[in-house]
Design a protein around this nucleic acid. Structure first.
Lengths: 210, 210
DNA sequence: ATGGTGTTGTTAACAATTTAACGACTAATC
DNA sequence: GATTAGTCGTTAAATTGTTAACAACACCAT
């Protein structure tokens, strides 16, 4: 049974938080969690949690709570987290390296399958068993390996060009760290991630009263 | 004239986008921008843009648009971006290094003033003219340098402890990259940034129909 | 059994946000 | 000058998201 209903962005964000917390509970050996357990751990009203879970078509038991394994399976299925989708990084500077080395890939249902860079001194080096390839190989590698997602961390001047290449090669999702609005067809899911956002938000929130 | 009204989170996010776009227009030599210019570049309805700008107490001219310099000044003032607030990074792994080397600091109104790490092989090394200091020095350095913000990129097990230290030292904002809910008083602004979020969101958005 | 208690599923009220609409004003044109 | 076209400021409506409330249900104790 699949929900055709679209979830709001904030709801997706909350569900991601739920998943993390519930998996923590699971590690602690819990078999059931209540909406209050989740809510109080996250600072979210229990009713809100129930409503989100309700939208999943969940099946909790009154007085007991939700079955941890079932809830995890539901959310992971919703997010398609249990299929290791091949992904690549384009631009292997500091940020690219940090992302490549993080544990986010498996958490997000992806597998780092290729790394590309422009710099001849970087191309050919190894990282975690992966050889860094030249930009010229992007199209072919994406095609042959069936890569579905590209993380773009190149200089601003090259971003659109790189995006065009990966789109033509059939990539379905782009995680764009470059502060540039990519011009892409709607069939490609683009998430823009500006590093400065967090800083600016904090700067705003701590602005001295005038 | 200061607005006591609180802006919604989504409005803050949009204003950050506006700022980037408007500064691009400025680089291109434009003196005025219309709400349509901004909106179409961002995929946002012009009316929405006007309403956001209206909330700033803006002063556009019909038929002409908004004065670029004035608009930039307004938003930068709103976000307190023109005061170089000292900040620090705690945890100098790959992610810490990537953040340290990025140009986000000046964009976000901060200045990287100190770097801390636990690893003896890293402590004492230099990065961009900054000596990496030991964790033990955090409290003193924050106090003496008046550091207002801390970026935390340490392992999960150390996050809460580090947060407590910086909070006691007087830090007013924390940018938390650790997938852990920090327990902090409300006087401290905490922004949580999970790297996996972007991936999970993309995974969700490109989930094959079932 | 039976009543009490805690928790879910679900609905309804409420609040916030987005979208739409339109008068007012400015600059350009004839 | 008068007219036209384009854009802002502002208000109202529609949509969306959040919060509150409560009946139904399951477990527990007696």
């Amino acid at each position: 049974m699949v929900k055709p209903k679209r979830l709001s962005r904030s709801c997706v964000l909350r569900l991601e938080l739920y998943l993390e917390i519930i998996e923590q509970f699971q590690k602690e050996g819990r078999q059931y969690v209540t909406s209050s357990d989740i809510g109080s751990a996250l600072g979210i009203a229990p009713g809100n949690v129930r409503q989100d879970l309700f939208g999943l078509g969940s099946a909790g038991r009154p007085k007991v709570g939700y079955e941890v394994t079932r809830l995890i399976a539901l959310i992971r299925d919703l997010f398609d987290l249990d299929r290791e989708k091949p992904a690549c990084i384009i631009g292997f500077g500091n940020l690219g390296r940090a992302l490549a080395g993080s544990n986010m890939w498996s958490r997000g249902g992806y597998k780092l399958a290729a790394i590309f860079d422009n710099d001849p001194s970087i191309v050919g080096t190894d990282f975690a068993g992966l050889r860094v390839r030249s930009i010229a190989e992007i199209f072919g590698v994406i095609k042959t390996q069936g890569i579905e997602m590209a993380v773009i961390t190149v200089p601003a001047s090259a971003a659109q060009e790189v995006a065009d290449i990966v789109q033509n090669a059939g990539v379905k999702a782009i995680w764009n760290f470059v502060p540039v609005r990519l011009n892409m067809p709607e069939t490609v899911a683009v998430e823009n991630q500006s590093l400065a956002w967090g800083l600016i938000t904090l700067s705003h929130r701590t602005r001295p009263a005038q």
